[in-house]
Nucleic acid binder design. Structure first.
Length: 206
DNA sequence: ATGTTGATTGGCT
DNA sequence: GCCAATCAACATT
C-alpha cells in the first residue's frame, strides 16, 4: 500500500504551522541513477519558517529577484539555493502565489537509501549524515537542478509522505539559526521547530 | 564538550 | 566589495 503524499493544501496554512506540521513527515527523493530509480527517505526532525518580505531573516527581504523568484510562486514547490560557497539548502514554498514564504528543512532521520547516503557522506559517522540543512541536501543528492520543482505533481521526484504525527510534548521551538545581524524582532522569532525522536535526542542540544 | 576559524562561490548593493 | 538560512577541522577547557 502506497503511503499518502502531502497535498498542495498542506502548504497553504500559516508558515510556522506548516513548519511544525512537517515534523514526523517523510521526505522522499526518487532519483534516477544509471537507469534505475533510487529511493532515499528520511523523517523530518527540524524545520524553520521564513515569512515574507517583512521578515528580515527571509531572502524575500530583498524583494523579487532572480534568486527569490520561486518564493513568489505557488505553494508546494521547492526552493533550493546555494550558500557559503559550498552548500545547497532545501525549502518548501508555502502561502498563496505572490506571498514569498517558505520552510527550510534543517534535519531528517534517514530511513531509506542508507547505502547511497553513506556513499555520499563518505567517512562520516551515521549520526551526522543528515543533521544539518547542507548535510541532508548532500546526502539526498539535492542541488540547484532541484529548484522550483513541484512536490505534489504525480511525476514529482521530491515529495513528502505522511508519517507519524509528533505530539507537542516532543516538539521544541526556538529562534532560528545562523541569522547573523538580523534585527529584532525577527532574530528572536521562535520559528525553529525540533522533534525529539527516540534516536534523535542529540538534535536538541545541537 | 565547547569555542574558533577557514573554505569557497553566487547574488545582490 | 560584501556577505551568506553552513560545515568540518582544529584548538582549548
Amino acid at each position: 500500500m502506497a503511503a499518502r503524499r502531502l497535498p498542495r493544501s498542506f502548504f497553504l496554512r500559516p508558515t510556522p504551522e506548516v513548519a511544525r506540521a512537517l515534523l514526523g513527515q517523510r521526505l522522499v527523493h526518487e532519483q534516477r541513477i544509471g537507469g534505475r530509480v533510487q529511493r532515499i527517505a528520511g523523517i523530518i526532525t527540524e524545520t524553520e519558517a521564513y515569512c515574507g518580505e517583512t521578515d528580515l531573516a527571509c531572502h524575500a527581504r530583498a524583494g523579487r529577484t532572480k534568486r527569490t523568484e520561486p518564493l513568489y510562486g505557488p505553494p508546494g514547490f521547492t526552493y533550493v539555493y546555494f550558500t557559503y560557497g559550498n552548500h545547497w539548502l532545501l525549502n518548501f514554498v508555502t502561502q498563496p502565489e505572490g506571498v514569498p514564504h517558505a520552510v527550510l528543512i534543517r534535519a531528517v532521520q534517514p530511513v531509506e537509501g542508507l547505502e547511497l547516503i553513506a556513499r555520499r557522506r563518505k567517512g562520516r559517522p551515521a549520526r551526522i549524515w543528515t543533521d544539518g540543512p547542507g548535510k541532508l541536501a548532500q546526502a539526498f543528492g539535492i542541488t540547484g537542478e532541484h529548484n522550483r520543482l513541484s512536490l505534489t505533481a504525480p511525476e514529482a521526484i521530491i515529495f513528502v509522505e505522511r508519517g507519524q504525527p509528533i505530539q507537542d510534548a516532543l516538539v521544541r521551538s526556538g529562534p532560528r539559526v545562523g541569522l547573523g545581524a538580523t534585527p529584532e524582532p525577527w532574530l528572536s522569532k521562535p520559528w525553529r521547530y525540533l522533534a525529539t525522536l527516540p534516536q534523535n535526542k542529540e538534535e536538541i542540544t545541537r
